[in-house]
Design a protein around this nucleic acid. Structure first.
Lengths: 244, 244
DNA sequence: ACGTTTTCTGACGATTTGTCAGAAAATGAG
DNA sequence: CTCATTTTCTGACAAATCGTCAGAAAACGT
């Protein structure tokens, strides 16, 4: 049971190195930008060795996706645990989402690429289950806050509208916005200066549209975000001070 | 100057055939699913002939993107021309967006794939300009309606919020939602049944959040959509009757 | 009918992926 | 330390695909 032989350690280290290099390549050149030959030569090993770690290219990509989604899930969990009224906690989730995108743009871009490139057929069921589970956890976290808000009478959803439908709205808006920012380089040219501020505002406006108390005019959620980011994500904030 | 020689006609026809086949391949297998060899053999010509039409694979993909974006732009223009109060016209744009996604899912999926795959370096500046122009026109159309709404006093944007910021919100939400539907096969498993209805509702809620008159409770915009789709997009509606 | 232009072909080199038999290295027992 | 066994690594190989190009074939015009 002793897994600590020096060789095993070296192998484990190499695996993380592989993923590091792979991520950089996928980000800069998409699926086809990832060349196993380049990775191998950069690591000073042969291509066959890479195949000892991952059965195929697609498994590498999916491993990257899992890493990525895990980071966000952890950040969501931290935000959801914050002690305050539901709307502020929801705002915290928004802060987490923005921090994630800005701190780890490579991860986010990766996620987008991987979701669309049709790599899924060749991957193992096991790893795919990991992805799905992570996604469900994220949705569950946010839906839980919405249910808290309903329980406390801060928001009442119309007939036929589920908490998940509201989550879907927030998720759509942020996911879509970050995706537009990432892909269409001309966002500012299109007249959308400061897209991140717009996203923060638009999500709050959506909650206002649902009548979620307290409304934006009753409480300064934008100032609240400043507090949240420092309290919940101190180290992350430190890294991002210049752009926040 | 006579371009109607039978040979030229045959060539032009073949070009559309190429794009048809290419779209099907990209949709089902992404960038790598598109094999020039398959196209050539299916058309009964050699691979070299394909290269007489397009300089490289990437140019084929970009040609597909232009086709796609043109269809949507045309639908947006039709919706924007509708004679009614601004909020109804905006609702018409939403109807157009949904119709587009549901009528031409292949086009939409294509668009997503292409935006992310890094093909842009190899393409001609000319075709890239076409894409950009189309995008700016779409944003311009919607922003125009927002300005109309402001001019008529139906909505007042807070200080520092531009009409484009509101457009960005709507665009993000719809784009993000359709993208989630398209990529994460488990939307319904995640508790989001009837995602298209949710999108319609969420966009209206966002407008409510901005205080855009008349509000959702004052006027039944969901019923309005039924009217709009029949009036503005009669043939499109006919094709989609079963799923609408 | 025939010379000229356009179009088409298919073989070629280059690149990349995944495999696998044998080489090399690590491990462990005496 | 030695040697047998297990694990790991290598690099050559087959297969697929992209883009090119010289020469063949077809179309065109006179």
């Amino acid at each position: 049971m002793n897994t600590l032989t020096p060789k095993k350690i070296a192998i484990r280290e190499r695996e993380t190195r592989i993923l590091e290099l792979a991520r950089r390549m996928v980000v800069s050149g998409g699926y086809n930008g990832l060349g196993l030959d380049s990775i191998a030569s950069e690591l000073g090993v042969s291509r066959g060795t890479i195949y000892n770690h991952f059965k195929c290219k697609e498994e590498i990509i999916l491993a990257l996706l899992v890493e990525t989604m895990d980071i966000r899930r952890e950040m969501f969990q931290r935000a959801a645990m914050y002690q305050d009224i539901p709307r502020v906690r929801l705002t915290g989730i928004g802060v987490a989402a923005e921090l994630f995108v800005r701190l780890y743009p490579d991860h986010f871009r990766m996620e987008q690429i991987v979701r669309l490139d049709s790599i899924w057929d060749k991957t193992t069921e096991e790893r795919r289950a990991l992805v799905k589970s992570c996604q469900m956890q994220c949705v569950g976290i946010v839906a839980g806050i919405v249910r808290d808000g309903m329980a406390q009478g801060h928001v009442t959803l119309p007939d036929g509208v589920t908490p998940e439908a509201l989550v879907f709205g927030l998720w759509s808006m942020t996911e879509g916005a970050y995706s537009i920012i990432a892909t269409s380089d001309a966002v500012t040219e299109l007249g959308m200066s400061e897209p991140f501020l717009s996203i923060r505002h638009n999500t709050q406006v959506l909650l206002d549209g649902y009548g979620w108390k307290p409304l934006l005019e009753e409480r300064d959620f934008h100032a609240e975000m400043e507090v949240l980011v420092r309290k919940i994500f101190p180290e992350e904030f430190a890294q991002l001070k210049q752009v926040w």
